[in-house]
């Protein structure tokens, strides 16, 4: 199992990845492996390293996401 962040838009996920890169936090954008059954397709930001700091940084910069785990 791996933690990841659910994001609605590929552009938002890519912007989030770019922000994290600037703070030396690695991340990868992929399709959401478990799309919400009401909302449909979405994107996932997989974090590598200090995930708590990454989430905090994203929140501070106004990104909206939902934490999830791969099956």
């Amino acid at each position: 199992m791996q933690d990841y962040l659910k994001m609605d838009s590929v552009t938002a996920a890519q912007s989030a990845k770019r922000l994290l890169q600037r703070h030396a936090i690695r991340a990868a954008v992929r399709r959401d492996p478990q799309p919400d059954r009401r909302r449909g397709c979405g994107f996932a930001l997989f974090l590598f390293g200090d995930t708590a700091s990454a989430e905090e940084l994203l929140r501070v910069h106004g990104f909206s996401f939902e934490r999830a785990q791969t099956p």
Binding site: D8, R38, R39, G40, G42
Partner: peptide, 16 residues
């Protein structure tokens, strides 16, 4: 748009 594809309504967020 490749996003929120089960929703009938167009996503409200940009650029989608």
């Amino acid at each position: 748009t490749g996003s929120l594809s089960l929703q009938r309504k167009q996503p409200a967020f940009l650029p989608d």
